[in-house]
Design a binder for these strands. Structure first.
Lengths: 344, 344
DNA sequence: CTGAAAGCGCTTACAG
DNA sequence: CTGAAAGCGCTTACAG
């Protein structure tokens, strides 16, 4: 049904070695022979099978990007950076999704053992350093985005600092009772952002009060959802005394939080995290991470390591950037347009 | 460096056939032998290589989902449906991204020839029927989402109808001068949605006026962006006489459009398309497509076809659903909260 | 420039 | 229950 290299060889009256050579542009093949082989291959709809090629040549020409969940802007932006970088090379991109519910380490180990790719980029996979270390025994090129392992190339953003900047901005505007909207406590970004939030309070001589950290439903996507933010803001606004500002762990959550405020027809300054495309359009103050660059840079690291496994390890830590828009203004001086309240 | 089946066989004092059997749970192996092999394999960090397995067994255990671009909610939701369905099976999911700038047919053909997967799901790849037909010569199981080929299984939504419903709703509210915000004219969803828009006008005895179709920048993602919608709405609002309602080709565009209205402090009813998660929170009236179900159903079709290549072809066309929220209200009776205007 | 042959790491009838 | 051996479709020294 499907033709193999033998069929082409026979039809072109050459050996399979020659057919292989014309497809790999390796070794020299007489121009006439090359043309004949190509013509026949084309007619027969032939192309070498990846699997056979990979087995024989020990090269797969595949880079795998491993992500915990999809449907997240953060990954999408990073992926764009990875893709563009890979376009310059002969590598194909494979996106592999691992379940966040099961043991992630085991899933990764399994992946690597099956040897599906020449190199791996891990996005937002949070493993203890000892576990990353353990993967080293497979001697496979890898690059880590948004987590840290001293033994591997990687890029990340200083989460603590982003939270610190946002919280400080609110305090310096005069707010004295700054709350936080959080998500799953044990998730790495939350740990670091809570840390930055706390540090900002303390550095400004304000008390850190854990009861001012609010959370909504965290069963879905660790709480990084509109619903999670909505519910958290509901609690926050009912708290007595009512907080006078809010640092929110993500833009999606902030969208939910804004709805809660609009419904209650009240308004406190809020700054969130991520700078989604939509945030600019709804006037959300936020912390930006250079996602595209992170994708591109980590890919550069990976390609370099595939070329030379012994090159020195590199890390980049990017600076988060505070982007101030409408949502962080102190209400009062002018009419504030809430985010459109829904009739739902 | 990496162990093979031979290493395990030797260490366990069995033949490679036996090792293969314990990993495939095929054939019967004495419990004691099985345990011994597993223990050794585990110690040596061994797992069969996919490529070698695929070559020898002719099965890859991989389903490939082919998408034109990432970073799009539509794909993400569909993917969730595909994933959940695949979880019940032994298949792994591979996401393959093809460039929308180059010839998509060629890229797909190349993919299939390389035989990377047991089956393919194509999302929003718009090819003429003759081209889909042509792919048939490879006899590879495939399922098409959001496009139609009589020769293949697939699911899609009636785009024309969605646009028709939205436009009709606006007209029936009393609007007489309904404009449309569009994107790349030649893209399939736009063609169909413009069609539904036109049909609704005509069925209600209103003239179809092409000059009332507005477009912003279409260089990026065919214009399905906040920026595209913003620019289109700017033009729309400057048009004389000003349209009194708007059907918008997508939610992302509507977000940009809302910003334009807020900035100009004016308001016309608007209904868009997609029902993004964010839309509920900003009160956007929209047309919903059952994306998750589409992913799940098309996967079911594909798995069925892999099992039995000769089973009869199936298609499902889903009904779009109109979801009415705040944005489609006729302004006037009550204070309308605009979408938060940005200070940017 | 081209071919014969070994080998990549598995699976799978076929025997026993 | 287990092994010897052929074969999957390629690549790649090695010769010529």
């Amino acid at each position: 049904m499907n033709h193999t290299i033998y069929d082409i060889a026979k039809a072109a009256n050459v050996s399979i070695a020659t057919v292989s050579r014309v497809f790999n542009e390796s070794g020299s093949v007489r121009e006439a022979t090359k043309k004949r082989v190509m013509k026949i291959a084309d007619e027969m709809g032939y192309h070498p099978q990846v699997f056979a090629q990979a087995l024989a040549s020990k090269r797969k020409n595949i880079i795998a990007v491993v992500v915990p969940i999809m449907s997240n802007y953060f990954f999408m932006e990073i992926l764009a950076g990875v893709q563009d970088k890979l376009l310059e090379t002969g590598y194909e991109l494979n996106i592999i999704n691992i379940q966040s519910t099961q043991d992630q380490f085991e899933q990764i180990e399994h992946l690597i053992r099956r040897q599906r790719a020449d190199g791996y980029i891990f996005i937002s996979i949070h493993l203890p350093q000892s576990k990353w270390q353990e993967l080293d025994r497979y001697h496979v090129p890898m690059s880590i985005i948004d987590d840290y392992s001293p033994a591997h190339d990687g890029v990340s953003v200083n989460n603590q600092k982003g939270a610190y900047k946002a919280t400080s901005y609110l305090i310096e505007q005069g707010c004295r009772n700054v709350a936080m909207i959080s998500a799953l406590e044990s998730s790495t970004p939350i740990i670091e952002r809570v840390d930055g939030y706390r540090k900002a309070l303390i550095d400004h001589g304000l008390p850190f009060r854990p009861e001012l950290i609010f959370t909504g439903d965290i069963s879905y996507r660790d709480g990084f959802t509109e619903k999670g933010g909505f519910e958290a803001m509901e609690k926050l606004l009912s708290f007595d005394p009512q907080p006078d500002a809010c640092f929110c762990a993500s833009d999606v959550q902030a969208i939910g939080a804004l709805k809660s405020m609009t419904q209650r027809n009240c308004r406190i300054p809020i700054i969130s995290y991520d700078n989604l495309a939509v945030s600019e359009y709804i006037g959300l103050s936020t912390v930006r991470q250079p996602m595209y660059e992170m994708g591109a840079e980590s890919t550069r690291y990976l390609l370099r390591r595939i070329d030379d496994p012994d090159i020195e390890i590199e890390h980049t830590t990017y600076e988060p950037e505070l982007i101030i828009r409408r949502s962080s203004e102190i209400p009062g001086e002018q009419s504030i347009n809430g985010i459109g309240s829904s009739s739902v």
